[in-house]
């Protein structure tokens, strides 16, 4: 059967062909078959992509798109494609990403059929997250994951899975591009759906922040800086009010921020300032926090007075700094009762 004939293959044939070829790749029996199967996969994926996106001259045909998606759901092809991504060649992987993302965006009225489908096939998401462990496909998986992040239902599944905590490891990977890709997915999960992530952070406070601590203490400068910046964003988002109150009540967190204020890197100092200010601005400081601040009162005032004095342009920063200095100067020990 020629794959590139005049007559285009119909969706059923494409899906069947892809399944067969992927199965061969998965369980290779003879060496000969492997090469052919790999070529077949690449060709079929290219055809599927054209069917979904159309070409420069022609728009995609709605009937074909509908039929192809049906076939893909029924044949459990999404899972197969993701799980065998490593065995598909470079061009084919890129096509998988495009096909996956196109299907995900599909909408019929208020329904998103692919999103609903993946909700019942959590293992697809898990496989995608695990993708960060395979350097060859990490970035492809990242692109698909971030597309998934756009949908609250999928983001929820990911946040609440055990595998979410693997991100704390992925963002520290030694390969820079994979680590940053993982970080952007991680950030997207925590920022995109405000209510969802607020709820998640509240319910899983201990586990998340225990892990987060390791990012803030990371040996890796980029990880440390990015994590600190994200922490500031999360705490200052009003949706995360409860989490913020909890975070700034813990004296260990304050100590960490005070140490980070003295880091070598000015950028980290600056980011730490934006978290530190929340501890000081809190009108209801718990006793342990107040005690630490009181004990270091003079030093802190001196330190802040000299802190980043060259940022004269940044009015907001200077206002905040002046406010903090005043707050710390005015600190009084609570009356013993």
């Amino acid at each position: 059967m020629p794959l590139f004939g005049k007559s285009q293959k119909n969706p059923q044939e494409l899906v069947k062909g892809l399944k067969d070829a992927l199965q061969t790749l998965q369980n290779p029996s003879k060496d000969k078959d492997l090469k052919k199967a790999s070529d077949d996969v690449t060709k079929i994926l290219a055809n599927m992509k054209v069917m979904l996106y159309g070409t420069a001259g022609s728009d995609p045909q709605p009937e074909n798109v509908a039929q192809l998606s049906m076939e893909i759901y029924q044949g459990e092809v999404l899972k197969m494609m993701v799980e065998n991504l490593e065995k598909i060649d470079f061009e084919g992987r890129k096509d998988v990403v495009q096909i996956f993302n196109n299907l995900l965006r599909r909408q019929i009225g208020t329904r998103s059929p692919t999103v609903e489908y993946i909700c019942t096939r959590k293992d697809v998401l898990i496989a995608l997250m695990k993708g960060y462990e395979t350097p060859e496909v990490a970035l492809n998986c990242g692109m698909m994951l971030r597309e998934c992040c756009r949908y609250e239902a999928l983001a929820k599944l990911m946040l609440n899975s055990e595998e979410f905590y693997d991100f704390f490891r992925y963002v520290e990977l030694s390969t820079f591009d994979i680590a940053s890709d993982a970080f952007s997915t991680f950030k997207e999960l925590l920022i995109k759906h405000k209510m969802l992530s607020a709820e998640f952070l509240e319910n899983n406070y201990d586990q998340v922040f225990h892990n987060y601590q390791s990012l803030l203490n990371s040996e890796n400068y980029v990880t440390r800086r990015q994590a600190l910046k994200l922490l500031g964003e999360l705490l200052l988002d009003r949706h995360n009010f409860t989490t913020m109150t909890k975070y700034i009540s813990n004296p260990d967190n304050l100590k960490l921020m005070m140490n980070m204020l003295r880091e070598k890197s000015r950028n980290i100092q600056f980011e730490a300032f934006h978290v530190f200010k929340v501890f000081v601005a809190n009108p209801n400081k718990p006793k342990p926090i107040l005690e630490i601040l009181l004990r270091n009162k003079e030093k802190l005032v001196d330190f802040l007075a000299k802190f980043h004095t060259d940022r004269s342009e940044d009015e907001q920063f200077n206002d905040e700094k002046a406010y903090l200095i005043k707050q710390i100067k005015d600190l009084k020990a609570p009356e013993e009762s």
Binding site: Q107, I108, G109, T110, K194, M195
Partner: peptide, 13 residues
């Protein structure tokens, strides 16, 4: 805002 987001008219294509 959350309820608006989840409303069918908002989500509809």
């Amino acid at each position: 805002i959350e309820q608006i987001r989840k409303h069918d008219w908002f989500r509809k294509k």
